[in-house]
């Protein structure tokens, strides 16, 4: 009998795990953005002293985990399991980081939704009594994502207005039992939703229905209302995707417009930084949560948060074959 299951897709943690510390590290562009002061480290060269961008991204995860471990006054060896993922083929950067860290590793792929996916899994592990300290970490890197999913950096093309900018950065959160929060209280695991959007330059529109579906299911399952949250924040819908998600929620009878935001919108200054729709990537919701939101929660400026990382589960192959973009969103409730 699954006592911790609530409604159709939600898990209610009976012994809510605490997020005892976080680490965040970002690239130079994110370091010029409005959230710069919240990050633990800002690298100046996006190659980060490595031979390739892929290895630079791997180092970002390593550093984010190390920072989180240091802040919790732990050692890497104290971490019992690691959930992690990124955007690259075969999870190159997370598995290479896990190789160097020598922490038992479970790799996850949920595209940009991986942060809440790994948070949910880590929380289940702690709540289930399988471990005492688990880290959830994800990363993305503009240059490594660009070459895998889009075009070479030096190609002189124009980016679509609905296109987003992959965040360079990594965030890591350590979950454990503790008296002090913030606590992970609920997790709503999303279904894959596909409304037939084909344009890979408009991922916000592809992912918005998935975000709306998960959020709506979360409210139905838990009986909570949008007003119960100080902030409902999606992963990387961007400017247009966010508007669509709010519209879709409205149609389903939930008015969330007042306290609804998007990590991709928060991380960059849309006017000055010319990112078009906003930030995206596994690292986007990771650094915004592990840097900005976590600190705001510790300051009690945000007491109840619904973090909804959103992922577009397409690949260059599926895109070239003309398939539409399946999308997913996982929601995690974090309270203090």
């Amino acid at each position: 009998m699954a006592v911790k299951r609530l409604g159709a897709q939600t898990i209610k943690f009976l012994n809510p795990p605490a997020i005892i510390s976080t680490g965040s590290i970002v690239g130079p562009k994110e370091g010029q953005g409005p959230l710069a002061d919240y990050f633990d480290a800002i690298i100046q060269d996006d190659l980060y002293g490595q031979d390739s961008w892929e290895m630079a991204e791997s180092k970002l995860i390593r550093e984010a985990v190390t920072k989180a471990v240091d802040k919790a006054e732990l050692k890497i060896a104290d971490i019992e399991f690691m959930f992690g993922g990124d955007l690259l083929n075969q999870l190159m950067s997370s598995s290479f980081a896990a190789r160097d860290l020598q922490v038992p590793f479970l790799g996850l792929y949920g595209a940009c939704s991986t942060m809440t996916e790994s948070l949910s899994m880590a929380a289940m592990m702690i709540d289930g009594g399988f471990a005492d300290r688990v880290v959830a970490a994800t990363s993305s890197h503009f240059s490594s994502a660009e070459r895998q999913f889009r075009f070479p950096l030096e190609l002189g093309n124009q980016r679509a207005l609905t296109a987003s900018w992959t965040v360079t950065g990594s965030g890591a959160a350590i979950l454990s039992h503790s008296k002090g929060g913030p606590f992970v209280t609920h997790a709503t695991i999303g279904k894959i939703i596909d409304y037939g959007i084909i344009d890979a330059n408009n991922m916000g529109a592809a992912m918005a229905p998935a975000a709306a579906d998960t959020i709506c299911t979360h409210f139905d399952d838990t009986g909570l209302q949008p007003s119960d949250y100080d902030l409902i924040i999606t992963g990387d819908l961007g400017v247009y995707g966010k508007e669509i998600a709010v519209d879709l929620l409205n149609k389903k009878g939930y008015d969330a417009a007042a306290n609804f935001s998007d990590c991709g919108i928060e991380i960059f200054d849309q006017k000055k930084q010319d990112t078009h729709a906003g930030g995206s990537g596994c690292g986007c919701s990771a650094v915004v949560f592990c840097g900005y939101l976590y600190q705001e929660m510790q300051l009690k400026n945000i007491r109840r948060l619904l973090l909804v990382s959103t992922g577009a589960l397409f690949s260059p192959t599926s895109s070239q074959q003309g398939e539409s973009i399946p999308s997913i969103a996982h929601a995690v409730t974090i309270e203090i």
């Binding site: 207005l161 609905t162 409304y195 037939g196 959007i197 408009n202 529109a205 229905p209 247009y240 508007e243 669509i244």
Partner: peptide
Amino acid sequence: YQKYVEQKAP
């Protein structure tokens, strides 16, 4: 939905 997105896109 696709029609709606097209209208919404800048």
